[in-house]
Design a binder for these strands. Structure first.
Length: 702
DNA sequence: GCGAGTTATGTTTTT
DNA sequence: CATAACTCGC
């Protein structure tokens, strides 16, 4: 059986799969079968008698975990829930050992939007000006500290400058707010688990004893907290197997520490290192380009990529277009061509650096009637109506979640406003109870008038009613809440509520999927699972549609035909990353990841002009294009410049500075080109905005 | 408490 | 520039 399993693997792969005890690092380039090695290794371990229960496999996304589980099922070696992401793994540990970690197991997981709300609250509590300390900056700083396992007390000792002192205060306050709401953010999941493993010998020993084998994929993108968890889990049996590629490390900005993989041999003495150098994915030309590009990184270990696929002509192209409209139209046309050659749309993907780039692409694809899907999972759950429904669910399991409560109370509006809630919050603080509990005892709050009490009562009754029915399947529960909370009625009554209702229906369907997939569906678990949803998780690989996604999301995927757009300076590499040497190298790795997704053809495009923030601006081809070793020349030229047609005039006039004899100088906001009767809308320096007939306005372009 | 008007924020990338 | 979040007056 095992022999059959191993047939078709290379010697290096076999060695990695069969390697039994001690630390193992598999350094492997793109398309070399890293994930395959992990999967086979699990299968081999199980075949040799190891129980799935004793194996812990960590993948980068839930999608990857699902796929791995499916493969294992195919190999007749189900590993069940033992395959998961770091975050899901931590949720399970924190729930099981909640009392050791002194947390409530019904915790809510706060996403980015919730986090921002908390930081704003923290800024308010600390009476700090949010102008000098923008919430997003503070949040990132707090997140960075958590990833390094630095708690507020640790930080107090190293905070010496003014910013650091403020940060410490904000961090402390932010953490207090989370605790009060019985909520954990993404970073807490890792940090609390890591600290629990450090501080509780009992928990550490139990887990370290249980997990005889630990396997971690995409190790190059682990942060310090994850490293600490891994170290603790492997502390007893020392059977850690990590796979990764330093050249594909693209999450440094999120706290990922490339040193984890570079120092593996130091961290885990007696480690064996196996390199997989054969690439089974891309044709030689694409690999050469990728190799040539990544060679420009100074901070890297030399690595080789040996192609195993035969060469095919025309596999890499670089094309220049006038603007993003032409660029995306050309991509749509190429996709149309592929389709006419019977290429399935499933095998085509378009990557871009920034999410904003998806819009012109969508327009072009719609125009050409090419079905597509934007791979961006979390977005669905951040829609207003979805958040509203989820707010109800969250209070049911965690009545301390004040953000959820505030949201639910007034969606739909119930006449319970800021003042009423503030009074309830005051009462809650005084009596050391949750705001929800305070509302439940509204009759005892003297400051509230009878009207307010009368409005609160039915709301509480409704929630209590829901509460008594939370057991079992989630989908019917959501459906019931949607109707009984009058959210459904309110949405149906609003004029563009049809889409919203449709979205909730989709939420119910997704919940039904969850109910089916789990033996013991439960609301808490459901909520925690959807909070850990990632972008790739929404990717429907079976749909006959072109996939659109960012370069980050593309990690770990592969497609026959890959398009990468807007390869221009300030986009790839991004403006914010082109100054710092390390960040620039990370941008290069990001491009490297994108290129190496291609199984057959790779089409790279850029435009000479691009609209950014509504402003048309001249672009510069990305320096990376010159590094591909493809004798690429910037096909820029004066001749194109002179052929201005009307369409170009439209785009050029908008945004430019003009002078008017009477109103002075101003910026063109809008240009409606109707030939003779064309109008321009100009915002003048005097502050007034005027719409003028172009032929009479007598404007001078400055 | 609610709507209209104003202003922050984002266009890096995400579990 | 476009949207979301916030503020202020009714």
């Amino acid at each position: 059986m095992l022999d059959k399993l191993l047939a078709g693997l290379t010697d290096a792969q076999k060695k990695a799969v069969l390697y039994t005890t001690g630390p193992l690092l598999v350094i492997a380039g793109p398309g070399s079968g890293k994930t395959r090695v992990i999967t086979y290794r699990i299968a081999a371990l199980i075949h040799s008698g190891v129980k799935p229960f004793n194996i812990c496999a960590i993948t980068f996304t839930n999608k990857a975990a699902d796929e791995m589980r499916l493969r294992l099922l195919d190999m007749n070696t189900p590993a069940g829930a033992q395959v998961s992401t770091f975050h899901s793994f931590c949720v399970r540990i924190l729930r099981r050992y909640a009392n050791y970690a002194t947390i409530n197991p019904n915790f809510t997981i706060y996403d980015r939007a919730d986090q921002v709300r908390c930081v704003k609250q923290a800024l308010k509590n600390c009476e700090t000006d949010s102008k000098n300390f923008p919430p997003s900056t503070m949040l990132e700083a707090v997140s960075a500290l958590k990833n390094k396992l630095v708690n507020p007390d640790d930080y107090r000792d190293q905070a010496d400058d003014f910013f650091a002192k403020v940060l410490e205060k904000i961090y402390r306050s932010y953490q207090k707010i989370l605790t009060e709401n019985n909520a954990l953010d993404f970073d807490d999941l890792l940090m609390k688990t890591a600290l629990l493993l450090q501080s509780s010998p009992l928990v550490r020993n139990e887990l370290a004893d249980r997990f005889k084998f630990l396997l971690i994929d995409e190790y190059q993108d682990t942060n310090h907290a994850q490293y600490s968890i891994a170290k603790a889990i492997a502390s007893q049996h020392n059977n850690i197997c990590a796979t990764g590629d330093p050249d594909q490390s693209i999450y440094r900005w999120r706290g990922a520490d490339i040193r984890n993989i570079l120092d593996f041999e130091h961290d885990f003495p007696n480690a064996t290192v196996i390199k997989l150098e054969k690439n089974f994915r891309s044709p030689p030309n694409i690999l050469e380009a990728a190799d040539s590009l990544i060679a420009a990184n100074k901070n890297r270990k030399q690595k080789i990529l040996i192609p195993t696929k035969p060469p095919c002509p025309q596999d890499v192209t670089i094309d220049c277009f006038e603007d993003e409209t032409e660029e995306t139209a050309a991509i749509a046309e190429k996709i149309e061509q592929l389709r006419s050659q019977n290429v399935s749309l499933r095998n085509i993907a378009v990557f871009y650096r920034v999410n904003a780039a998806s819009r012109p692409l969508e327009e072009a694809l719609i125009k050409s009637k090419i079905p597509y899907q934007i791979v961006r999972g979390v977005e669905f759950y951040s829609r207003k109506e979805i958040r509203d429904v989820l707010a109800y669910l969250k209070i049911l399991v965690n009545h301390n979640d004040e953000f959820a409560l505030r949201r639910a109370v007034n969606s739909p509006p119930r006449g319970i406003g800021k003042i009423t809630l503030e009074k309830a919050a005051q009462y809650a603080r005084k009596n050391n109870i949750s705001v929800y509990e305070a509302l439940r005892r509204a009759d005892n709050i003297e400051t509230l008038n009878t009207g307010a009490k009368k409005r609160i009562r039915p709301f509480i009754e409704m929630i209590e009613n829901f509460k008594s029915n939370t057991a079992g399947h989630v989908a019917p529960l959501i459906e019931g809440i949607f109707e009984k909370s009058s959210l459904a009625a309110a949405l149906k009554a609003s004029k563009d509520g049809d889409d919203a209702v449709e979205n909730v229906r989709e939420l119910v369907n997704a919940a039904a999927d969850y109910d089916r997939a789990n033996d013991a569906p439960c609301l808490i678990d459901y909520l925690q699972q959807i909070s850990l949803f990632s972008d790739t998780d929404s990717y429907d690989t079976s749909a006959e549609r072109v996939a659109l996604m960012t370069l980050h999301t593309a990690k770990g995927l592969e497609f026959d035909h890959v398009f990468i757009t807007s390869i221009e300076e300030d986009i790839l590499p991004h403006t914010k990353s082109s100054e710092d040497h390390n960040e620039l190298e990370e941008e290069r790795r990001l491009f490297f990841v994108g290129i190496t997704r291609a199984k057959q053809t790779l089409s790279l495009t850029y435009a000479r002009y691009r609209t950014i923030w509504g402003q048309l601006s001249r672009t510069i081809p990305s320096r990376f294009l010159y590094e591909l070793g493809l004798d690429f020349q910037d096909i820029d030229g004066e001749k194109k410049e002179k052929n201005l047609d009307l369409k170009n005039l439209t785009t050029k006039l908008t945004g430019s500075i003009v002078e008017h004899s009477k109103f002075g100088t101003g910026r063109v906001k809008k240009f409606v080109n109707t030939g003779q009767n064309s109008t321009v809308t100009v915002k003048f320096k005097t502050g007034q905005t005027k719409t003028l007939m172009l032929k009479y306005a007598n404007l001078t372009i400055l």
